[in-house]
Design a protein around this nucleic acid. Sequence first.
DNA 1: CGCCGGCTGACACGGAGCTGACGGCGGTGG
DNA 2: CCACCGCCGTCAGCTCCGTGTCAGCCGGCG
Lengths: 219, 219
Amino acid sequence: MRILLIEDDPALGEAVRDHLAGLAHAVDWQTRLAEAEVALRAVPYDLVLLDLGLPDGDGLAFLKRLRARGDATPVLVLTARDRVSERIAGLEAGADDYLVKPFDLGELAARVAAVARRYAGDPNPLLEIGPLLIDRARRIVIRDGVPVPLSAREWALLEALALRPGAIVAKERLEELLYPMGEEIASNAIEVAVSRLRKKLSAHIIETVRGLGYRLARR
Amino acid sequence: MRILLIEDDPALGEAVRDHLAGLAHAVDWQTRLAEAEVALRAVPYDLVLLDLGLPDGDGLAFLKRLRARGDATPVLVLTARDRVSERIAGLEAGADDYLVKPFDLGELAARVAAVARRYAGDPNPLLEIGPLLIDRARRIVIRDGVPVPLSAREWALLEALALRPGAIVAKERLEELLYPMGEEIASNAIEVAVSRLRKKLSAHIIETVRGLGYRLARR
DNA sequence: CGCCGGCTGACACGGAGCTGACGGCGGTGG
DNA sequence: CCACCGCCGTCAGCTCCGTGTCAGCCGGCG
C-alpha cells in the first residue's frame, strides 16, 4: 500500500516508516501539514497516518478539511492525547481508526492491515441467499426483512456455509472451522448447531446431504 | 438564529430582546441562571448572551459548568466590569466574545452577526435513535423530549457507540476509547458504565452482543 | 426387522454479563 | 476547613444465555 505518514517526531517517524517499509508498504513521510496537504492532492494514497498535535496546525481541522472536500482516503490517527473526548472527536472528524501513543509497532501494522483489508474488496459485501440477507460486517442476518439475532456459534456456522453457497461442506470440515484445534468435540455438536440454526432461519435454507455434509441452498 | 438572553435588568433585557427580535432572531429571555440552565438543556440555541453578575449566582461559574460538560454553544458575555483581567477570565471560562456595558445595540447586533457567520455553515447534526435525540455539539441527549443529564463517562460511552449506530463496538475498543491508555482497568467498569447508561436511557437502546461488545440500536 | 445416519427436545454447566452496594476522590458550598 | 454530594471504579453475588451432551425418535435401506 501507498502510505502517507504525517509525523513531526524524527525518531518515531523514522521507526514507523522503516517498520512499514519492511512490510512492503510504500511510505512517504511528511513532517508538516502544509506539505502533507500538497502531497495528498498529488498522490493517490491508500492510507494516511496522521499525528495530531503537529506544530504547524490543527490535525483535526486538517482531517475535517480533507473530508469536507470529499476525500475518502482512510486515515489512521496517532495521538498522544489522552482526553476521552479528543479521541472520539478524532473519529467524528472522519478518522477510520486511531492509535494512542506510545503504541506497539506490531499493533500499528495490524491496524494498517485491517484498513487495507477493509478497503480491499467491496466495502460491505451483502450476501443474498433465498430469503436471507447476510451482512458480515454488522454480523447480522435478515430474513424477510426481519433481523435475526444469531449466537457466536450459529454465526460461525452460517458463515462457513455461506462462504460458497451451494457447495457441500463436510461435517469434519465444519468441525475444523468451528472448533479451532485442541478442543475436539465428542458428540453431535455440529448437528445440534445446524438444528438450532435451522430453527432461526427458514429450515429449508440448510440442506442435508446424507453421508457427506451440509449445503446452503443457493436459492 | 435562536438566542438565549440571560439578563436581570428589565430595561436592558427588553431593549436587547426587542432589538434582536427586530433583526429576525428568536430570542428567549431568562433572568435567572437556574432557569437559563434548564432552557439551555432543552433547546438547541445558536447563541447565548450572558450577563455576568446576576443576583442568583456566578455567571463565570455558570459558563465554566457549561463548558465543563462539553456544551459548545457560542457564548457572548455582557459585563459592566471593565477590568481587563475579568474580561480575560471570561474568555478563559469559555466565552466566545464579550461586550462591556453600556454597549451600543448596533455593536451588539454586529457581534451577533459575526457569531452567526462563524457558525453558519456548520448545522448541528442531531442524531435520532429511537426515542433518543443526541446532540453532539451540545453534549446533550433528549429522551422523549426530556433532556437527560449524562456524566462525562456516560457521555463518552454513548458517543463512542453513536459514532456508527448499528455497528458492534468491542469491549476492548470501548476501553481504549474511554480510558487513557496505560492505566488499564481491572474490572467490569465498562459493563457498569453500560448499566448506568441504560438506566438513564431506555434500556433497549444499547444492545449486548455476547462475547463481542455492544451496539447502539439503529431504530 | 434391525441398523445407521441424522434430528431435536431436554438438561446441566460454565461463563459472560448485570447490578446493587460500597467507598474513595474531587469539587462545591457553607 | 469541614460537610456534603455526585461520579465512578471495584467487588460480589446473581441471572441468564450459549452450548455440549445425551437420549429417544424418525426415516430409509438392506
